[in-house]
Every structure is written in structure tokens, then in C-alpha cells.
């Protein structure tokens, strides 16, 4: 069973901006956790501290009994293999093909010359084909990433992250560069794959409606600390005021009953699979 435990996490950037201020967070079940909060609340910093793309100033991050904050460069590379990351701007290698981008999720398991000759193991290649099928990109293996639409690029981003067979998915604003329909499709796909694989996901998101619709659990950050931790139903105007500051939230919050929410997601999936 996965266990991610973040305790007393502090990050102060050079120049004195304090993005995280002693944050505590535990994820111990395979669930989709969305992280909401205003710009500058520390969402991106939190996710980047977990795989140490950003070095934490202090605090501890423990992933499956492994103290990520104490790792050497070599140990960190091994730990990063177990954490898949998905980005707002997709961050694909634009001039490489969809297949090369997907297989790059296995870079931690091949040496330099294997990477140079794109020589990945047969099971890895089979898995890449399977993942491209599951994200709906059959037949795109030879297409260059710069020829894809935003939604397609993010699908490649998802395939690349899942290629790592991660213990944890770190997702930074996956839908912020996409139109509302594509955003929903991407969120639905992401959550479906996370649930199917039993991989917990930490998803930063600006859109409160999307967060409510897809999350098993919502964490609200404000000023670099945990201001809310609960389910979509518990997200009241008072809570949103605490996270974002005073605003009229009456039109933002949708509170469907648990049943209808599940039904909507199921319908969506059926539509998706019928279309694909």
C-alpha cells in the first residue's frame, strides 16, 4: 500500500518568497487528490518538492518508507522513476515522435547507448503500444509531438507518466491550457487510469468545478499551508473563502448528490469509449 507523507514542508525561494510554510499532507490510499488554491499558494511548489525538481528548504517527504528529502543524486534518480509527472504545458520533446516521448518514461531503466539507439525492452515497447491505445492515440506512433493538438499532447504526457509504472502521479495543472471540453476528457481519462492502475494522483487544479467533479479528496492550500482537507461535498462557500479570500461562490459550487455524480462520470466514460 502506498504511503506518501509530507511533514512540515517549507520552501523559501531565493529572494525571500516563501511558497510553502510548514505544510503537512498524507496520502495513504489509491485516490485522486486535487489540490486547489489561488496562484502563489504553493501548489506547484508542493508537487515539485515531492520529486525534488524544486529543493525543499526544510521538512520531510517520505514515499513508501523512503525519505526523499535525504536522497543523494543517484538515489533521487531511482526514486523519480517511481513518480510519474504530468505538466500544464505537456513538456513533450517537440521534435521527437509520440512513441519516443512515451518510451522516454523508461529512461531510468536503460543506459545511455540504449537511449541513444531507442533500444527499449520488448515488454516496455508492448506496454507503450498498450498505453497509447488506452489514451486513444492508436496509429500516432510515428507522429511528431509538435504535430499534435493540445489534448493529444496531454494524452502523450499521460502515457509517458504511466509508462514509468509509478507509485504516485504528480499532476501540475493538466487542463489549464485546454478548452473546457478537452479539459473534462483529459481529467476523466486521468482519473480513470489512476483508478484502474490503483495509482494515487496528486492533481493541482485551478478549476474548482473540475476538482469537485473528479476528486475523491480535495486539499485546499492557502499561504503555503493546508487550509482544507475533505471531500467535494464539504467544499462550502465558507471553505472557499478561507482558501481564496472573500468572493461570491454561489454560482461556482455544484453539489450533485454522490449517486448522480458517479452516474455522470460513468456516462462520460461510456461516451468516450463509444467514440474511441
Amino acid at each position: 500500500m502506498l504511503m506518501l507523507s509530507v511533514s512540515k514542508l517549507v520552501k523559501t525561494y531565493p529572494g525571500g518568497v516563501r511558497a510553502l510554510n510548514g505544510l503537512d499532507l498524507t496520502v495513504d490510499t489509491p485516490q485522486v487528490v486535487t489540490v486547489i488554491g489561488s496562484s502563489g499558494a504553493g501548489k506547484s511548489t508542493l508537487i515539485r518538492c515531492i520529486n525534488r525538481l524544486v529543493e525543499p528548504t526544510s521538512g520531510r517527504i517520505v514515499l513508501n518508507d523512503l525519505d526523499v528529502t535525504a536522497l543523494s543524486r543517484r538515489g533521487l534518480r531511482r526514486a523519480r522513476r517511481r513518480m510519474g509527472m504530468i505538466f500544464q504545458e505537456y513538456n513533450l520533446v517537440e521534435r521527437l515522435t509520440v512513441m519516443e516521448n512515451t518510451l522516454s518514461g523508461r529512461l531510468g531503466y536503460v543506459n545511455f547507448w540504449q537511449a541513444y539507439r531507442r533500444k527499449y525492452s520488448p515488454p516496455d515497447i508492448a506496454r507503450a503500444f498498450e498505453l497509447l491505445h488506452r489514451v486513444g492515440l492508436d496509429g500516432y506512433e510515428y507522429t511528431r509531438a509538435d504535430a499534435l493538438s493540445g489534448g493529444q499532447r496531454q494524452r502523450v504526457g499521460i502515457a509517458r507518466a504511466l509508462m514509468q509504472q509509478p507509485d504516485l502521479l504528480l499532476v501540475d495543472e493538466p487542463t489549464a491550457s485546454l478548452d473546457p471540453k478537452t479539459a473534462r476528457q483529459i481529467m476523466r481519462l486521468l482519473c480513470k487510469l489512476a483508478h484502474e492502475n490503483g495509482t494515487p494522483a496528486l492533481i493541482n487544479i485551478h478549476d474548482v468545478g473540475l476538482a469537485q467533479e473528479f476528486a475523491d479528496r480535495i486539499v485546499g492550500l492557502a499561504d503555503g499551508v493546508n487550509a482544507f482537507d475533505g471531500t467535494a461535498d464539504e467544499l462550502t462557500p465558507e471553505v472557499l473563502n478561507a482558501i481564496y479570500g472573500e468572493e461570491d461562490w454561489s454560482k461556482t459550487i455544484n453539489r450533485p448528490t454522490a449517486d448522480s455524480n458517479k452516474k455522470m462520470q460513468r456516462d462520460g466514460l461510456e461516451r468516450e469509449s463509444a467514440a474511441g
Binding site: N51, L53, R77, R78, A79, R80, R81, R82, M83, G84, M85, F87, E89, N91, L92, V93, E94, R95, L96, E100, S104, G105, R106, L107, G108, F112, A115, Y116, G157, R160, Q164, L170
Partner: peptide, 25 residues
């Protein structure tokens, strides 16, 4: 820089980051 960050996040070595993240660009 984002592409390089993504390749680093897979656990790639320093030379692999140059090979896959930098050189194609």
C-alpha cells in the same frame, strides 16, 4: 526548460537528459 524538467522527472541520468531533453531541441 519545461521539456528538460519532464525528462529529469522520469529519473533519467544527466547524459540522458542531454540526449533526449536538450539535443532534439
Amino acid at each position: 526548460r519545461g521539456t528538460v524538467e519532464a525528462v529529469e522527472a522520469t529519473g533519467a541520468s544527466r547524459l540522458q537528459v542531454l540526449l533526449i531533453g536538450v539535443i532534439p531541441q
